[in-house]
Design a protein around this nucleic acid. Structure first.
Length: 251
DNA sequence: GGCAGCCTGGTT
DNA sequence: AACCAGGCTGCC
């Protein structure tokens, strides 16, 4: 392998000959690793019950086997119970960038406010815009809700009607929510596992996702939920106001 | 734009 | 049996 690339939720594996495989995990996909020197070290630190939760040996659709010296060979496994994910190939990174990746928006992990402002045009709901990978690449249902909560923007707000201040806040929220999720090995709600098979811990940090009916961590009022852009959407009716708060009122 | 449909499995 | 789930495509 020559290099790894990522744009949004897509991972590109560039081979030595320049050809590229793109992995998209979809809803339930996982990339798991076995063997290699690192696993032995990781196993020592992993409690036995952590691996007993779910069988990671079913629904294995694809595996790449690597050989290396001194018994350090291993494999990379693509596992996807729900089969919404997939792997596709491209002749080169240029070919990928000219086609699939050319249609994606800028990466959400490093989005800045001016760039975000340029992307958020139109009358549709801000949440629908955030979920659109052509607008911004890398935000799914969990982190759209989490970022909107942190930015105190109601998901139904028209994307093109956000104030400069709100966009600034939203860009910062997107970066920090995603960076935190990466740092915590992602959100394991059911299927997802980090490469060594360990569950993520980012779900412990969710302020709104999956908490409809519970109390807002900031204001203690009851979190509401609705269907938006075909997805369950949870928000705080007090913290995330329907329109910009008039000057002089709270913050 | 919204939304059915893709697919499996867990919960109600 | 019906409904729900982390995503995305294609069809109105």
């Amino acid at each position: 392998m020559r290099a790894l690339h990522r744009l949004g939720k897509q991972l590109a594996i560039e081979a030595v000959d320049g050809r590229v495989l793109v992995v998209q995990l979809g809803m339930s996909g996982q990339l798991l690793t076995t063997g290699g020197g690192a696993e032995r070290r990781a196993v020592k630190r992993t409690p036995p019950q952590a691996t007993a939760a779910a069988s990671l040996s079913t629904h294995r659709h694809l595996a790449w086997h690597f050989t290396a010296a001194r018994d350090r060979s291993g494999a990379l496994i693509f596992r996807d119970p729900r089969r919404f994910g997939g792997v596709s190939s491209y002749a080169s990174m240029d070919a990928l960038r000219e086609t699939a990746w050319g249609a994606l928006g800028p990466d959400a992990l490093t989005i800045d406010a001016p760039t975000l402002a340029l992307r958020l045009r139109g009358a549709r709901a801000i949440k629908a815009a955030l979920l659109d990978q052509a607008v911004l690449a890398g935000v799914g249902n969990i982190y759209a809700d989490e970022a909107l909560f942190r930015a105190r923007v109601r998901p139904t707000r028209r994307a093109g009607a956000l104030t400069h201040e709100e966009i600034e806040c939203l860009a910062t929220a997107l970066r920090s929510v995603l960076a935190s999720a990466v740092q915590h090995d992602g959100s394991t709600l059911r299927d997802y596992r980090a490469p060594r098979g360990q569950p993520g811990r980012a779900q412990l940090l969710h302020a709104v996702y999956g908490r409809a009916g519970e109390l807002c961590l900031a204001c203690r009022c009851k979190l509401r939920h609705m269907r938006l852009a075909g997805r369950t959407t949870t928000w705080c009716p007090t913290c995330q106001r329907a329109s910009r708060t008039p000057a002089g009122r709270e913050r």
